[in-house]
């Protein structure tokens, strides 16, 4: 089954900035895909489009066969998990515990189940001691872990991660990579870190500086220095 089908997708931000141009892409269920590109190449925009949070200006997107539409809002929120690049945008509750319980409450998950899940994921991410702390008092790495735990808790069928290992120390990075690798969900990860790609993905989508998809392929794309240079990645 196709997890993502995007055809001739163009997105322009309200201020007129072009986000992505004519993107056509298919991602199968269970695939681990890295969106690789320089800063401003449209990686985050593509993730936003795949999450159903914004609608393309032109073109067509389907996630698990469902259009980005108000009527499919609940389907998207239950099945698509998005991690934003800046965890400060993502965490807005008064304690880490409330962060973990936010989405389950919004989606009317029974309280007992939500608490059980929150404790389980707090343990997995090693954030049990932070549960009663306000998120804004955490370090950058801790914020990333909390944000990722919030997303993974809902066991999304499609996971969209925007630079999950940016601005974190080596230990936290290893932990995040380890957790990402343990998932059997469809994964799309936006990054400009070349060394991260083979660790988490088996397919590469290379975005060019003109905000168009430059190439799609396997990990062998990482060997093509000319192409990577053209994309501004190296």
């Amino acid at each position: 089954m196709k997890a993502i089908t995007a055809k001739d997708v163009t997105y322009v931000y309200p201020d007129g900035t072009v986000g992505i141009v004519d993107a056509t892409l298919e991602i199968e269920s269970g695939e681990k895909v890295a969106l690789l590109g320089a800063n401003g190449s449209g990686k985050s925009t593509l993730l936003l489009l795949f999450s159903g949070l914004v609608k393309p200006k032109s073109g067509h997107i389907e996630i698990f066969g469902k259009k980005v539409d108000k009527s499919n809002w609940e389907f998207f929120r239950r099945n698509v998990g998005v991690l934003f690049q800046n965890p400060d945008d993502f965490l807005f509750n008064s304690t880490v515990r409330e962060e973990l319980l936010y989405t389950p409450a919004q989606l009317d998950l029974p309280e007992e189940e939500a608490i059980k899940l929150a404790n389980e994921y707090a343990k997995t991410f090693g954030i049990e001691k932070l549960l009663d702390k306000p998120p804004f008092r955490l370090s950058g790495g801790e914020k990333k872990k909390v944000a990722l735990a919030c997303v993974l808790m809902m066991k999304p069928k499609l996971l969209l991660l925007d630079e999950p290992t940016a601005n974190v120390d080596g230990k936290t990075r290893r932990k995040i990579v380890e957790i990402i690798n343990s998932l059997d969900t469809t994964l799309v990860i936006a990054t400009h870190e070349l060394d991260l790609v083979p660790k988490v993905a088996n397919k590469v989508v290379l975005l060019g500086l003109d905000r168009r998809i430059l190439s799609v392929g396997g990990l062998e794309l990482l060997e093509n220095e000319d192409l990577l240079e053209k994309a501004g990645v190296i």
């Binding site: 936003l48 949070l53 998005v82 934003f84 919004q106």
Partner: peptide, 21 residues
Amino acid sequence: RAERVHLASVARGYDGRTKVY
């Protein structure tokens, strides 16, 4: 920033009403 936070909260299930257990 407010726009980004709003998008993040919608991504996390916010539908115009903050629910608490």
